[in-house]
Design a protein around this nucleic acid. Structure first.
Lengths: 214, 214, 214, 214
DNA sequence: TATGAATGAGATTTCATTCAT
DNA sequence: AATGAATGAAATCTCATTCAT
């Protein structure tokens, strides 16, 4: 997916060679950041993994930050497609659980994603912003559509925006807590999924009777 | 709170002077990290703000990291006390909303907290770990007590652990989205609070009838 | 000899420029260590003399120590060649005196050598080790060959190893005592040479008759 | 010998307390330099071992260097006495072997001596100078007396001075090579002693007949 | 377009010495 | 005389970026 085809290098025209070099750098950055984090992703290290000279880097990217900021949005789109493909046509609550599970499946598919996502806020703020805009607007539409279908509790648009943050926060924190391990990324335990399902379907607290109308 | 009293400097004995200097460094670090982030919090900058020599720093802290790792747990305890003081004796759901609101109030009291919290995971992992252990164990006890009082839906201990992550993730992500602004920290909008209340009391989705037993 | 040719700098290709820069650093280090000693040979000072930026240093040497450890063995080889070229085909005792004299001649040729040699044990232990292995194994072979030619008193291989240490110690201590002076390095006095000759040809003490068989 | 009596500290008058503190620092320095070398002998480390405050150091020594420069001469005198006590009344050649052996015995008695001696040249030049003046003048007198007794080959005073350097160089280099080991200081092998004896009694090389008169 | 050596600012840390108490 | 916190200069090393070939 983010893998540069290692096919024949010969017989490429100028444009193709150019794109191929850029892709090599991009893939190298994904690997390096995914494995060692943004802080350790020096231009020297990235270009070494990409097997190009340091100077070559600057023929393709304005500076180090530009590349780092492109990392998350690109993989983020992969994630959206991955999740969409795994979401069925059951009722809305079930679909949300499917999306939730698919998120963790994606993390295992692309182990670099977790680190790239989590660190981006501080090391690639522009990329983080872009990714979050992508995700949250998509998520918001999903919720609005569910509401239109009468499948949700009563939430205003503004409240939905907040809910989107909560749901993304849940994924972010849970993945940090449950997906990291010594070597590689592990599957998320079932009780995490069930806890999430209960929360989004019934809430957390029983409400005393007289308050149920609020 | 984390502010060194700038009262009389004269007439302090050796022990007091020593503590006072350390506190000056600590306060300076809080300010600097809160304003510019850990990455920009060089020892040079911190000691400049603290108005001590760079060498003095190393009389009080083993190294830069040690100080950074102390920052979050210390302020985190302030937060716990702050929230506890603002939590009443109403029903459990209301108390949770009070805690939630109080969290955002605390952020406004100590504007540095937000940045110190959010960046700690990567720049002060030991401190982050300590803080999160503090918070999540306290939170877990709260939920268990509520469950014992029959105030929550049916969750296992393991599920509660996951819920704690979700609730902390909610605070983390919402505060990033709604509390930051150009200059300083703003109050969180009411619809964020109402969205949170609805989620924890009723959940997000209506569940089709035949599923209600699950 | 260890002097970078200051000839045309222009018209060098990349490889040549690279080697030339490294040689400039090397020569600068030789000068600096020779004049001020290892302790004062900071990277800042060396690069200033070499007229390159500090960062350039680390393109050519892993770290400061690596350079320092290369200094002695490199010049040490120059010394070996120098001495070998000055050693004739007279009897073994005379050859040893020639080598001894040539050692002091070399010191005057390369005045930096003395300090680089003497301080290396503590400031560049790896380089010192390498140099001494070079020298002592060569020296040992010389003695063994002389013994095979019946030109020495009766010594075992182990005793020869000790003798090598003594002969090197003699050069080391004598050069410290007689070659240093206010400014620059002076020739060694004749009586030093004659004393050495007498020692290695007749020993120091007359032996009472009854002991001569031991 | 260099050990501060750890007897009653109480009941000392001002002068005694003063001397006792100075001795504590001195002993600590001996230990530290002997074990870790001059370079690692920071004032902080020495005073910590001596169990006094850093500032106290400067009540007894002008500066760090002054102390370091006193170390070697003081222990050097101990060595002279030690060797003298071990030298018998046999013929001069045997006495020299006794002195040589006693030197290595002393090294084992006072293991710190070796390092303090070897590093002094560069880290405590003044102390090194003083020590060497002490030793070499004493040594010179020994040789002159032996010559007066007709026990040596024909050497002039100047040649004797050079010989003294050679003999000291022999001890220095041999001790570095044969006395150091992983932990502690080891006895010198017999073949080192026999090699030395042969050298000083018979010389190293057989001299062709026609040269024997030179 | 690719190369990779050169740059130099900036970061952390050490440590001999001072000095007020 | 003893204390130990404060000082600040100096050292090593990193790394994003430039630029001549």
């Amino acid at each position: 997916m983010t893998q540069a085809t290692s096919a024949k290098v010969t017989k490429l025209n100028r444009v193709e060679r150019n794109a191929w070099t850029k892709q090599k750098i991009f893939d190298a950055a994904t690997k390096v950041v995914g494995k060692y984090g943004y802080a350790e992703a020096s231009v020297a290290r990235i270009t070494e993994v990409a097997d190009v000279a340091q100077g070559t880097f600057y023929n393709h990217f304005e500076n180090r930050q530009e590349l780092l900021d492109q990392l998350l949005p690109k993989i983020g789109l992969d994630m959206v497609h991955f999740i969409r493909a795994r979401t069925g046509t059951a009722d809305e609550a079930r679909q949300e659980i499917e999306r939730f599970s698919a998120f963790f499946d994606f993390i295992r598919e692309v182990p670099e994603f977790l680190r790239i996502l989590n660190e981006a806020e501080f090391f690639a703020p522009a990329g983080y912003q872009k990714h979050f805009d992508n995700i949250s607007s998509a998520y918001l539409r999903i919720l609005q559509r569910a509401r239109a279908a009468g499948a949700t509790s009563t939430f205003s648009d503004e409240e939905f925006e907040a809910i989107v943050q909560v749901l993304m926060g849940a994924r972010g924190y849970l993945s940090r807590r449950y997906s990291y391990s010594e070597h590689g990324v592990t599957a998320v335990p079932d009780h995490v999924i069930s806890a999430y399902r209960k929360l989004v379907t019934h809430g957390l607290f029983n409400v005393p009777d007289e308050e149920t109308k609020s």
